[in-house]
Design a protein around this nucleic acid. Structure first.
Lengths: 142, 142
DNA sequence: GTTCAAGTTTAGCACAGGCTACATTTTGTT
DNA sequence: AACAAAATGTAGCCTGTGCTAAACTTGAAC
């Protein structure tokens, strides 16, 4: 495969990737919120993402349309089965990437920031490579 | 810093990050194209990114507006100083991430794909960690 | 020098994801 | 019960990034 052909593959996926990123961030946040506080409301997401409640509201609408979330007006959010699954997968990736960054010597704060961005672009193969690395322990590297 | 506070930081940057990603991809591609073929036309980018020529055209317009590219109607594209700088930085990050993925055992094809997505989310600190890792050689890990 | 093909530009549309301003509903306090 | 505050919803706007259709330039072939 040529270099430019590879790039084509990636970029033909870029748009839909971006569409999925927000969904993953939201369901992850919703799952966290439900776990830690028992339920999740739009206002919790407003605090998380630092966007206006209108933006949150409409993003939730898209999540509902896409089958990740169910809501009734003025009621807390609930994840569907698909939403829960997506949240778990997203959180798992996130955690592995975070730990991996820590392992290669990135500071906690930066690891937290970068893992948020990176997690959405890590394929199963790369994730597996990171896991292998983590299992070896940091003694191997340092 | 709390976990949710960290997330806020990342997400408050997400939108502008996305805006920058495309710019980086474009200037990188333009720089590659100029190097390999002597000049770069919109049609070359159409092939690279697999989007319509109209989309390319308007993206170029934004790049020009933002000072990364100069064009005259029906003429090849040129990078400004800022554009060249951005392209170099982008390519450097890209290359380090790619080599790093290879080093931890990711296959070439996947490394190419994932590095395209990851490069935009790697902070200088994480990039430095990856470089340290590369300098140690793969013998340390395998 | 005309004509034709390739490249470019313009017009106009869609959707995602951001916003403010304003309306409505819920909930907690008195 | 009434009011105030908090949460949610609605209307309408903007930009970015995608598209098709149609017009226009440019350059090459005849």
């Amino acid at each position: 495969m040529t270099a430019s052909k590879k790039r084509q593959n990636r970029h033909s996926r870029t748009r839909s990737d971006h569409a999925t990123e927000l969904a993953e961030d939201y369901v992850e946040a919703i799952a966290d919120c439900i776990e830690s506080r028992g339920s999740c409301r739009a206002v919790d997401l407003v605090k998380q993402f630092q966007v206006s409640h209108v933006t949150v509201n409409r993003t939730i609408g898209r999540l509902q349309r896409d089958g990740f979330v169910v809501t009734e007006p003025y009621a807390p959010l609930q994840l569907t089965k698909a939403g829960t699954k997506l949240a778990q997968a997203s959180r798992r990736r996130h955690e592995i990437v975070y730990q991996f960054l820590i392992e290669i010597g990135v500071g906690e704060s930066t690891a937290a920031t970068d893992s948020e961005g990176i997690e959405h672009h890590v394929s199963p193969e790369t994730l597996a490579a990171m896991q292998r690395f983590l299992k070896k322990g940091s003694g191997v590297f340092y």
